[in-house]
Design a protein around this nucleic acid. Sequence first.
DNA 1: ACCTGAACACCGTTCAAGT
DNA 2: ACCTGAACACCGTTCAAGT
Lengths: 225, 225
Amino acid sequence: MDSMPLEVEERHLRADAERNRRKLLDAAQALFRERGLDVGVAEIAERAGVGRGTLFRNFASKEALIVAIVGERMREMAERGRALLSEPDPEAALSLFLEQMAGAQHVDRALAEAVADTLLTNPEVRQAHVEVVAALDALLGRAQAAGAVRQDVSALDVLMLLKGVCQAAAAFSHIDPDILRRQFDLVLASLRPAEADRQLPGKAPTLEDLERAFPVRRSPGKASG
Amino acid sequence: MDSMPLEVEERHLRADAERNRRKLLDAAQALFRERGLDVGVAEIAERAGVGRGTLFRNFASKEALIVAIVGERMREMAERGRALLSEPDPEAALSLFLEQMAGAQHVDRALAEAVADTLLTNPEVRQAHVEVVAALDALLGRAQAAGAVRQDVSALDVLMLLKGVCQAAAAFSHIDPDILRRQFDLVLASLRPAEADRQLPGKAPTLEDLERAFPVRRSPGKASG
DNA sequence: ACCTGAACACCGTTCAAGT
DNA sequence: ACCTGAACACCGTTCAAGT
């Protein structure tokens, strides 16, 4: 059972079905991005030009639709993080990545609501999130090796700290674009190499801690084995 | 119209009505605290031992019930902040207040969800929130005067930074109690007096910025003037 | 094989009938 | 004056009837 590939479901769709699926994704993407995850399925189907039932034929639930969209955005973000590994200055690369994450949430309400929500327990979103953490971990490791960042923080430490920045700054930056940068600088200040008597207590949180805090819920019904 | 007192509505309730109101508040408080703001009004009314209709006679909406509870918790928190002004060590007082805020959200899911939500646009919650900011501002000012905290941060700067810590740490601290303290220490590290070339850009956010970012929505219908 | 809208279940909210 | 549960409006989801 461990040899079963995880991402098949590539069985051929009829041409019109494939087209409808795309129209639904595009409509939902635009509406979620603009007005958040509370927009109704009726409006999404209408904007896509299909019946309500078609939405649920392509996606098991409204959440599944959300997951398809948010998961993709997260994977894009992880990819941008990996790309920054070729940036010569390790500190600048880390700072840029943090900035891009906040920026993405700023222009996409769906993404901002998703990371705050309990959506992280969904398997697909979790996997994408793990990718992001891995990319951040790599960038953070480089910055630490270069002596630009204190040794005793982990990627999850940084991510937790950034979460508030993203949410708060996103709400404010319509008004005052400076605030985003201020909050960043505060986060970066917290990450500077610490004197010996300022070491953080306990152990740095890992992905295993994340798993124990938010156990991934198996999607119900589908898997019978 | 500016001479109208804001918090009257103290007209006498019949004894049984007063009792029902209390039962509803107690039931909702317990359920919200334990399981978050999604618990249904039917369950709340049942636990309180009254009909659904009675809930809506005492509170204009489910949100009004939430606001009554969350607002009170926030006002308690502001009071604790003001009490800490008599703590002799300014840095310890500030640190304690931040710790108490995170702790309160840790034991009360309702509070944690409320501060993340758009509930801040509600007038009553906003007023309570402003009280908290004011208390934090006083504690922060003392710590800055004592040279324990950099001069260029405002209470809102700190509150934004803390928001992520509260959310993230609350979720994790079931697993690893160290994490809360780590995140705190990171926030405190970011607040240490900065070297001249590390000053934050722009101006520190004020309560007026908060008002422009989240304009208070007038409660609809009630006020006719 | 897929599309569709009527029908269903589940919320918050209202209101006519009771006391 | 207040209480109550049946009724309503509004969601996400299902499904029998269509193509």
